[in-house]
């Protein structure tokens, strides 16, 4: 039975996965174990994505299935078994840029993968990032941008974080249309992520869970 959920989720069979979860819950199965299987299924999804068997839409679809599964299991989790959020992430599209869909996809994938994401929105001034980091104590910051115009804004955001004395307390990742490792160096960020999965992997690495 346990194996079924892992593979059903990995094969992105939404209805079947939901049925399995419902059956296991009514059979009194440990909700923590169900979530553990779901996590294993998502790991396979990530692997298939990195091997180009799956694409971004498949990834987002897996996230939507995982979210339904989590909603079903959540009420059965007791305080002790309730899975803790993996870590906090402050995320936004930098000042001067108003593109949201790329950011929204990464935010969604971080959220369903267990991160507490504080999404600031688009066209976010550097100072707003600084304030949110202070307020939440988040150790991870994600900066999104679409055009080359975003490069300087990203650099200014990283500098503002530094000026506020927070640079050694946070890891900064950047991503979006024109970003690259070269731009990562220019902006002073810690890493560049080429897609939503890369964002999740970086966040997991930095929180020590992946």
């Amino acid at each position: 039975m346990a194996k079924d959920l892992v593979n059903t989720l990995a094969d992105l069979k939404e209805q079947e996965a939901i049925e399995i979860v419902k059956d296991r819950l009514s059979a009194g199965d440990d909700p923590f174990k169900i979530m553990e299987d779901a996590r294993k299924g998502m790991e396979i999804v990530g692997k298939r994505f990195s091997e180009s068997e799956y694409f971004i839409p498949d990834l987002v679809y897996s996230g939507e299935i995982l979210r339904v599964v989590t909603e079903l299991v959540k009420p059965k989790l007791t305080k002790t078994t309730e899975s803790k959020k993996l870590g906090k992430v402050v995320f936004g599209t930098v000042a001067g840029d108003i593109h949201d869909i790329g950011k929204d996809i990464v935010v969604f994938m971080l959220d369903v993968n267990g991160f507490e994401v504080h999404d600031l929105g688009v066209d976010i001034p550097a100072q707003k990032f600084v304030e949110k980091i202070k307020e939440t104590g988040a150790p991870i910051v994600g900066l999104s941008g679409f055009l080359t115009l975003a490069f300087d804004s990203m650099k200014e955001t990283v500098e503002a974080i530094k000026a506020a004395g927070l640079r050694d307390k946070v890891k900064v990742m950047i991503g979006g249309g024109q970003m690259s490792d070269e731009i990562k160096n220019y902006t002073g960020a810690d890493a560049y992520g080429k897609d939503a999965m890369a964002g999740v992997s970086l966040a997991k690495k930095w929180t020590g869970v992946g």
Binding site: I56, P57, V60, D100, D104, I105
Partner: peptide, 18 residues
């Protein structure tokens, strides 16, 4: 409409409509 979908958690719809 894309932004509204994303805000209401319908990321897949938002992404495809985009």
């Amino acid at each position: 409409q894309v932004t509204d979908y994303s805000k209401s958690g319908e990321t897949m719809r938002g992404m495809i409509l985009d």
